[in-house]
Computed example of a mutant assay.
Amino acid sequence: MTYRILIVDDNEDILEFLSQVLGDTYKLYLAENGEAAQKILDTEVVDLIISDIMMPGIDGFELCRLVKTNVEYCHIPVVLLTVKNTYQSHIEGLEVGADLYIQKPFSPELLLVQIANLLANRLKIKAHFASSPFEDVRVMAHSKTDEAFLKKLDDYIRKNLKDPNLNIDQLAEHMNMSRPTFYRKIKSLSALSPKELIDVTRLKKATKLIAQNEFSMFEIAKMVGYGSQSLFNKNFQRYFNVPPQEYISSLGKDKKE
């Protein structure tokens, strides 16, 4: 997987320098100001933003604030670059939601390591959510805006779990987004497609029903929207790396221990 980074700086030399540092590892989009950056965000899938703070028009602080309060791309980590080295500027960077604050001049090697760590940690969180039966969807939120978005979405999916035809169009409409925008948002947040997110939510509910020990596996599959027992079993093993029957046995062992 090649991550996509948006670099925003009004200095052409800095854009060229960062392109040389990052170009061999990442797919890059370049913008000379905040307005141009917004246009790229509206049309491209971006995994991380690197922005200078001091720019005419929309500066780095304002761009970061706009990103972190817009539900369509508030999940994107933002790295702010600055020549300022004051407590006030650091505080302001944190207040607008910056994920990293790096002072110029900086070591290219240090920047590469910090970016790689930031992206790797996001990926670990996504993988943990998908493979952990009891993990809440909001574990993937990186801002209050994301948290509210995910709760609204999760509530709707859970309310309609019994509907085997629940699909991306219904979810996008409920979240007041176009289908492409909604797809990009979910894919970026969770590394799952909307269909996979629905499946994971169905299966997480199934694990709770299994633990209650009140229903047959066939009944549980139907209660979470699966018309096919074999598909339920297949998806359960795909996401949780264990077949349902083995999962039931593991619950019995845990109680004995």
Rank of each mutant, 00 (worst) to 15 (best):
F129V: 05
P108G: 09
I49F: 02
L192F: 07
L203I: 02
A31M: 11
A127P: 00
K255T: 15
M1E: 04
K162N: 11
L22R: 11
N33P: 04
P105R: 08
R65S: 15
Y29R: 05
Y101S: 00
F106Y: 13
S143H: 11
S249L: 13
F215Y: 14
K126W: 04
D154F: 00
N241V: 03
E95D: 13
K124A: 03
K255Q: 13
Q114A: 09
A191I: 02
S216R: 10
F129W: 07
Y239A: 01
I76E: 01
L231D: 11
L94S: 11
I50G: 03
A211D: 06
L63I: 06
I186C: 03
A36P: 02
G227K: 13
K39Q: 07
Q170N: 06
E32Y: 07
L41Q: 02
I220W: 05
T181F: 00
Y239Q: 08
L81I: 00
I102V: 05
P244E: 11
G57Y: 01
G227T: 14
K159F: 05
V71A: 15
N121P: 02
E72Q: 07
A37I: 04
R122Y: 12
N160C: 04
M55F: 00
I186S: 06
L94Q: 13
S250Q: 14
V21F: 04
T2H: 09
I248C: 09
L80Q: 04
L30V: 12
H90M: 04
I50P: 01
T2P: 11
F215K: 14
K144D: 11
E173R: 09
R122D: 08
V200Q: 05
Y101D: 02
K195T: 13
S132A: 01
C74Q: 09
D163K: 09
I91E: 08
I53M: 03
S107Y: 01
E109R: 09
I53A: 02
D154E: 10
D146S: 12
T201S: 07
D99Q: 04
S89K: 10
S249P: 07
I49W: 01
N33E: 03
L6C: 04
D13C: 07
E257P: 03
D154L: 00
I248A: 08
S51R: 04
V96P: 11
